Computed example of a mutant assay.
Amino acid sequence: MPKPTERLVDTNGVTLKVIEAGERGNPVVVLTHGFPELAYSWRHQIPALAAAGYHVLAPDQRGYGGSSRPEEIDAYNIVELTADVAGLLDDVGAEKAVLIGHDWGSPVATNFPLFFPDRVTAVAALSVPPVPRASAPPTALWRKIFGDNFFYILYFQEPGVADAALSADPARTLRRMIGGVRTTGDEFAAQRMIAPGPEGFVDRLPEPESLPDWISQDELDHYIAEFTRTGFTGPLNWYRNFDRNWELTESTPAPTIDVPTLFVVGTADPVLSFTPRDRVRDVVTGDYREVLIEGAGHWLQQERPDEVNNAILEFLGGLR
């Protein structure tokens, strides 16, 4: 099996760096990463999917890594993000693809069939489940829920503030995010993330005693080098489009996801505490399956690659 290759693809007014593996003509699988990650986050899935007979495309999404970083905040809205993926399909001559997303990549994957219903075969979401459109602008709802307490998405809204804090020491930021974003028995650490006060996001994360056993220093250094070079403004701009995305999804070409859909999540993923799964059926009308991986945290496909690969390949096998 040839090794994955990297190339640049012009799509939807931006240039995306794409990791590609597998033979053209095979069923296409697009992998969309989350925050603060890269196509590199799928390094354990790309060769496994290619070996199973799929043509894999894993982009650094706009704002990240080797891809374009538009300056305008509204350039990171969900219409543009899903259109980027459609352009990748055009580039390889594929009518349809399976979309698999993690974290922020999950909304890209689960919104794609709403905007491009004729171009998707199936969807898999990791860590963030498919959710229906909110009843009001999301930031208004979060302000009502959290009041004067800290909530990281609201903290990310003000341009420049989180950008400076996260970029001040990318090694510290990424070390704390990789090692500190999970549910633990540390009640004080959990409370600190929603307590009032002037501290920012990174300062509230615990400093890990050591790296998790699923990531090496060399692997972490890859992220550190990229985010030291690019900064965090592009990725943070994704968060600054929550209300704009709410407006843009009031009416979509397809009202629901009617293709087979898989949701995979770790039971120690803190995202589950504020992203409930009880309304999935409001947005998914096709076949739906959940896989919970006991004890796994947020960086799911890196932390538990074998279990994630098995779940994805079983799901894809059922489509054939």
Rank of each mutant, 00 (worst) to 15 (best):
D148I: 08
N149M: 12
F150A: 09
F150V: 10
Y152V: 14
I153S: 03
Q157V: 04
E158Q: 14
E158P: 09
E158A: 14
P159H: 05
V161R: 09
A162W: 00
A162L: 11
A162H: 00
D163Q: 08
D163F: 11
A164P: 09
A164F: 07
A165L: 13
L166M: 15
S167D: 14
S167R: 06
A168I: 05
A168S: 13
P170V: 02
P170I: 01
T173L: 05
T173D: 07
R176W: 01
M177E: 03
M177R: 00
M177A: 02
I178H: 00
I178S: 01
G179W: 02
V181G: 13
R182V: 15
T184Q: 08
T184A: 12
T184W: 07
G185I: 07
E187C: 08
E187W: 11
E187G: 11
F188A: 15
F188L: 15
F188D: 15
A189Q: 07
A189H: 02
A190M: 12
A190E: 05
A190C: 05
Q191R: 13
Q191A: 15
R192Q: 14
R192T: 12
I194W: 02
I194A: 13
I194E: 05
A195P: 04
P196L: 11
G197S: 07
P198V: 08
P198Y: 03
F201I: 05
L205N: 00
L205G: 01
E207R: 08
P208I: 06
S210T: 11
P212I: 06
P212G: 08
W214C: 13
I215R: 00
Q217I: 12
Q217M: 13
D218Q: 11
D218S: 14
E219M: 12
L220I: 07
D221C: 13
Y223D: 03
I224E: 00
A225C: 07
A225H: 04
E226N: 08
E226C: 14
F227I: 01
T228A: 12
G231R: 02
G231S: 10
F232L: 07
T233N: 10
T233C: 06
G234K: 00
G234Q: 01
P235N: 05
P235M: 06
L236F: 05
W238R: 00
W238Y: 10
Y239S: 03
D243H: 09
D243Q: 11
R244A: 11
R244M: 10
N245G: 12
